[in-house]
Write a protein that binds this DNA or RNA. Structure first.
Lengths: 194, 194
DNA sequence: TAACGAACTTGTCTTATGTCAAGTAGAAAA
DNA sequence: TTTTCTACTTGACATAAGACAAGTTCGTTA
């Protein structure tokens, strides 16, 4: 239950004095979460927010044909949440499941609201996290328009190589917007190049 | 300078007493913006936020090959902004240009920050707008994964038919993630069906 | 040990979409 | 009026990626 990764994350998103970061960190509770645990379940209101200090999780939903589509991949030092369900208090449209044993710090909706009202830095931190999340989403959306599946794969390999150790390729494929068949061929071609 | 669309929008995003909405609305200033005006310019810090009460605008950026890619289309009763540039005080990566004469209400970064600190409802409104924006972005990203260009076109025709009167098809095509050639064929096939 | 199932690969064929180039139409400029 | 430009369309061909089906590999269960 080393809080350092959480403190570092808080300060990275919104520069603030270490004491403030420690104060905020102390409002989250440590929890070990084994592989295969659902942190968010589709259809239920998401009322806990998880910081994944160590480990890896996958958010997914089903499309009209019932196919499992990975919508987001969380790994070391990221906040995992369905903000839409969390803040609007409506059933989540997606599920979140751990893909490895995880070291997490969590906070309930109530405690988070209290923080919002009592710690201005937390408010700012929350805003920055939403803005950063939106930016990442927009970049990913643009990569769907501007790049090929192969380019998206190469980028993912560079930026988050660790996820390939925990997440099946078929799930990574849907995250990249391609089929598992295509990903398999892309990987074969990559092997041959190197 | 009828503020009603703005007041309606505020209350739609975050239900609040009409007096509160009117108070917030009074912190924005009316401005008529002719077609072809840049509200945000790539490379400059975005320090004004615009509510487009009436009219239509297009956000775009250039990809590596120098192609113009439409990243977002704003029309009646929407807030147009580059939050990433606005809140982080860094140069915008995109430009925003009006595609028709527009009736707008704008607010400066300073006034908005003041509102954040003095009007709790405004703070909540801002948070909700960010969350709604993220949700829309995620849906659009998923539509790039799960749907064909034709399906995305059909959806856009249903939800924002008005933009086809002001925005050239080539710009709409890049927004849909297809080429203008493909959009032209999709539209031809649609004509034949009906 | 054998059987099974999930993850992954590969072959074949199809399809959506892109690329490039030529052509049309209408508005704006000369 | 003629010219020019931009938006848009269309044809011919190329390519990325999907669909489907048949393996292969490997860990788990019986």
């Amino acid at each position: 239950m080393n809080q350092q990764p959480l403190i570092n994350y808080l300060q990275k998103v919104l520069p603030m004095p270490t004491e403030k970061a420690e104060q905020i960190a102390s409002t989250l509770q440590y929890k070990f979460v084994p592989k295969g645990t659902f942190l968010i379940e589709e259809g239920k209101v998401c009322d806990t927010s998880y910081f994944i200090a160590e480990g890896c999780a996958r958010m997914y939903t089903n499309d009209m044909d019932g196919n499992d589509v990975t919508t987001m991949i969380f790994s070391n030092a990221m906040f995992a949440n369905d903000f839409y369900s969390f803040f609007k208090r409506i059933p989540a449209l997606e599920s979140l499941v751990t893909m490895s044993d995880c070291e997490t710090f969590f906070i309930s909706f109530e405690d988070l609201q209290r923080n919002f009202h009592t710690i201005p830095e937390f408010r700012e931190f929350g805003r920055m996290m939403l803005i950063n999340g939106s930016f990442a989403l927009k970049q990913r959306m643009l990569s769907m328009i501007k790049q090929t599946g192969e380019q998206r794969y190469a980028h993912l390999m560079e930026t988050k190589p660790e996820i390939f150790q925990h997440i099946p390729l078929k799930n990574i494929a849907s995250y990249l917007g391609i089929t598992d068949t295509s990903l398999s061929r892309i990987r074969r071609d990559f092997m041959r190049k190197d």
